[in-house]
Simulated assay, not measured.
Amino acid sequence: MDGKRNTILFKLFGSSVSFMRRCLFSVLSVGPVPNHLAFILDGNRRYAKKWNLGEGMGYRAGFLSLMSLMKYCYELGVKYVSIYAFSIDNFRRRPEEVQYVMDLMLEKIEGMLKEESLVNQYGVRVYFIGNLKLLHEPVRLAAEKAMKATSNNNNSILLICVAYTSTDEIVHAAAQSCEDKWAAIQSSVNIKDSQDGEEKDTNDVIKLSDIESHMYMRVAPDPDILVRTSGETRLSNFLLWQTSNSLLYSPKALWPEIGLRHLVWAVLNFQRAHPYLEKRRKQP
């Protein structure tokens, strides 16, 4: 009897919290709602050390925070969510830690494909962003399977940056642009040397649009807000190309400690700065 009563009370409490959250989001929606939020998931290991948890448990706690935050973002109406899950530089960590993260990543990717997952509940399309060939093969194959399985979802977009750094992305885009341009030049039979006084042929010039068309993040607009937890203000080689006009927010909370209040505060700061950010984006 007590167990049944506790279950009913728990459901009522959950419904009340959900209702209050929807009311809060309705108020926030009066102002501009960010279209794209990006997160640097910093502090998982420090969280585990802080609470004397077993090695790797900080990452699991961080995953639970990620699921909650994604749910809040989609309820608020945020279309794109990007997360910095694993940097190329992280491969330099101890092999045991890297293997643990890869195993956890594989477990959670496979969980995404289950019918009751958050991804399917909210109709989320998943992209894995980065140099995916650096991933362990089972993880890479699972990532490719998840992208294919969610390709018809269009309500929201989740971009998971793994084996990623911004410098690698830029080098990749520049190299691909050069290869494409060289192939176009080689295949053209009508290219002639420009003569003095005539307009120069610019077909061999690599343009900004060429670079951006080969960026890993070309599938999403630039972030409106970039959040890095743990109070750190470094970007750590994440979205350097895309965040020149983004609002930066650095709460002191470790990633597993991040919650609704941090998201609300980030959105309020964005709404306050929105006129200035829009002005900057419209400048040539």
Results as ranks from 00 to 15, higher is better:
72 Y>S: 14
98 V>F: 06
35 N>C: 12
11 K>F: 14
84 Y>I: 04
172 H>S: 13
242 Q>S: 13
207 K>T: 09
192 K>D: 08
81 V>W: 03
177 S>L: 09
269 N>A: 06
213 S>C: 09
280 R>Q: 14
134 L>I: 07
80 Y>W: 13
257 E>M: 08
280 R>S: 05
236 S>M: 08
51 W>G: 04
182 W>A: 13
47 Y>R: 00
223 P>C: 07
176 Q>N: 12
201 D>A: 09
236 S>H: 02
219 V>I: 07
64 L>V: 15
206 I>N: 08
9 L>C: 07
121 Q>N: 10
172 H>Y: 12
77 G>P: 02
79 K>C: 14
206 I>H: 07
144 E>F: 06
200 K>T: 09
231 G>Q: 14
164 Y>M: 08
257 E>L: 06
157 I>C: 09
220 A>M: 12
152 N>D: 14
150 T>G: 05
258 I>M: 09
216 Y>T: 07
189 V>S: 12
131 N>M: 10
272 R>Y: 14
127 Y>H: 09
46 R>E: 01
141 L>G: 03
41 L>M: 12
193 D>H: 10
116 E>R: 15
148 K>M: 10
244 S>C: 06
51 W>M: 11
234 R>C: 11
92 R>S: 15
284 P>W: 11
163 A>V: 05
112 M>A: 09
114 K>H: 13
133 K>F: 09
232 E>M: 09
212 E>K: 15
22 R>E: 13
125 R>G: 05
102 M>P: 00
165 T>K: 00
70 M>P: 00
187 S>W: 08
93 R>L: 11
37 L>N: 04
16 S>F: 14
160 I>C: 05
7 T>M: 15
49 K>M: 10
246 S>L: 09
41 L>D: 01
175 A>W: 07
178 C>H: 08
13 F>V: 11
35 N>M: 11
20 M>E: 11
5 R>H: 10
215 M>G: 04
199 E>A: 10
117 S>K: 10
131 N>T: 10
31 G>P: 02
73 C>R: 02
234 R>F: 11
55 E>A: 13
265 W>P: 01
63 F>H: 15
146 A>V: 07
71 K>D: 14
38 A>V: 04
263 L>A: 00
202 T>Y: 04
25 F>D: 04
18 S>W: 11
71 K>Y: 04
192 K>W: 07
151 S>R: 13
111 G>S: 07
20 M>A: 15
250 S>Y: 05
94 R>T: 12
212 E>A: 15
161 C>I: 04
160 I>D: 03
146 A>R: 02
172 H>R: 12
127 Y>M: 02
187 S>I: 07
168 D>S: 13
161 C>V: 03
39 F>D: 02
32 P>T: 01
262 H>S: 06
148 K>R: 10
237 N>A: 06
66 L>W: 00
254 L>C: 00
27 V>R: 12
196 D>H: 02
70 M>E: 05
182 W>V: 13
194 S>V: 08
204 D>I: 11
103 D>R: 02
189 V>M: 11
116 E>P: 02
257 E>A: 06
83 I>Y: 00
284 P>Q: 13
196 D>R: 03
233 T>S: 14
38 A>M: 05
132 L>V: 03
9 L>E: 13
129 I>R: 01
227 V>L: 15
214 H>N: 11
29 S>Q: 07
42 D>Y: 03
33 V>G: 01
122 Y>T: 01
44 N>M: 08
200 K>R: 12
151 S>K: 13
20 M>I: 13
